[in-house]
């Protein structure tokens, strides 16, 4: 992961930054996309559509969305990075 073009979605900077620093793979970032989503509450969620599109385009590298959405997931992720 080297950078982002989120096409109007809002992503959480701290999470994205850590992804770049850790050099995580695109597939791992997409699987954990829920942690980075910063769109306002009650807005429609796009993670599933994005993951589905990836799977259609890359049948060899199928991924599944890890359901760890929400602030708890973010906190867990960021604390993990610090440790």
């Amino acid at each position: 992961m080297t950078g982002f073009n989120v096409l109007g979605m809002r992503l959480r900077q701290a999470v994205c930054e850590n992804w770049i620093l850790d050099g995580v793979s695109v597939t791992s970032a997409l699987e954990h996309l829920g942690e980075a989503v910063f769109d306002p509450e009650l807005f429609s969620k796009h993670e599933n559509a994005i993951v589905t599109a990836w799977n259609e385009a890359n049948p060899a590298q199928r991924i599944t969305l890890k359901k760890k959405r929400g602030l708890y997931g973010v906190f867990q992720f960021l604390n993990l990075q610090k440790a």
Binding site: P40, E41, L71, Y72
Partner: peptide, 22 residues
């Protein structure tokens, strides 16, 4: 009310409920 988050041209703000810690 969430208007600050809506008028922000950069999407900097988000109203959230989460763990108290931090």
């Amino acid at each position: 009310c969430g208007i600050c988050a809506s008028v922000c041209p950069r999407g900097v703000l988000r109203l959230e409920n989460g763990p108290e810690e931090g």
